[in-house]
């Protein structure tokens, strides 16, 4: 069983400043303290330029902090000898799957990372078989990745990361390039991996609807962690979100307009279903 009190990623007093900027610009991140627990689903939101992608890259040792420290499964990202092990524990999914598919067939692509670990071929075959069945890719193994749909490609990218048996998966706007069906496909896959296999997820998104499924929503602004809480606490706080130039889900926004018009809607509505139920029960009681 997953021990949810265990910490996978721990960041303390984290700061990062991109170099090469002529003007003294403000750091991309500063003073960030955050832990990711085993099996936890975190949605990371914030305006463009607030530091979301930088934070993911620091978790994955693609960047090392200017100040403070990140530990993944207890290993510091400063520890260059263990960088590969950090990336195995904590895999990254980018916005555009075309940027991370490398092989000529789906099967070889999923196996790519495993081959680099120089695992025995029986073990590689076993793991490719396992992850392709979890992700529903069995029938696509011999296909060329570039012939797949966007959602399928993104699932192949996830399979490649999952084959490394990570404790945590980092996703940077993984649905931004996908059509609605592809988007549902990827979101359901990730939810399944999180709830059934205890995979921790850090999901950067601009879509408030995608933050609803998280255990915890973390908000960044100008490189600082400015708020965190349950989806109901954060998505329900329209003044916080609007102040940052963000919007909540359509259900929250509509509920807040209707409350201004005198509708007696309960707090804590964040999904369409909750809004529809509340409006219908008002209609019935009146």
């Amino acid at each position: 069983m997953v021990n949810r009190s265990e910490i996978i990623i721990e960041a303390k007093d984290l700061a990062y400043q991109y170099t090469g900027e002529e003007e003294a610009s403000s750091p991309a991140l500063s003073g960030v303290n955050i832990s990711v627990h085993r099996g936890e689903y975190i949605a990371l939101i914030g305006p463009n330029g607030s530091g979301k992608t930088t934070l993911l890259k620091l978790f994955n040792a693609l960047l090392v902090p200017t100040n403070g420290e990140v530990r993944v499964e207890g290993i510091s990202t400063f520890d260059e000898e263990n960088i590969l092990s950090i990336r195995r524990h904590c895999g990254m999914i980018f916005q555009n799957p075309d940027n991370q598919l490398v092989a000529t067939t789906v099967e070889e692509d999923i196996a790519f990372g495993l081959e680099n670990l120089t695992l025995p071929s029986a073990e590689i075959q076993k793991r490719v078989g396992q992850v392709s069945s979890v992700l529903g890719l069995q029938d696509l193994l011999q296909q060329a990745p570039h012939m797949l749909s966007g959602g399928e490609k993104q699932r192949v990218a996830i399979a490649g990361v999952l084959a490394m048996q990570p404790g945590c998966i980092l996703m940077d706007e993984p649905t931004a390039m996908l059509d609605p069906a592809g988007r549902n496909d990827v979101l359901q896959t990730v939810q399944h991996l999180n709830s059934e296999q205890g995979l921790a997820v850090v999901h950067v998104t601009h879509f408030p609807e995608e933050a609803v499924m998280a255990d915890r929503v973390v908000v960044l602004e100008d490189g600082r962690l400015v708020a965190q809480g349950s989806p109901k606490e954060i998505l329900g706080n329209t003044s916080l979100l609007h102040g940052l130039g963000l919007q909540s889900t359509a259900a929250v926004e509509l509920a807040s307009l209707l409350r201004q018009d005198g509708f007696d809607l309960p707090e804590g509505i964040i999904t369409n279903r909750e809004l529809v139920n509340s409006i219908c029960s008002l209609e019935q009681t009146d």
Binding site: P47, E173, H206
Partner: peptide
């Protein structure tokens, strides 16, 4: 083609 991909709400 998909003009708002990657932009936040205010963008």
């Amino acid at each position: 083609d998909e003009p708002t991909a990657g932009l936040d709400h205010s963008g």
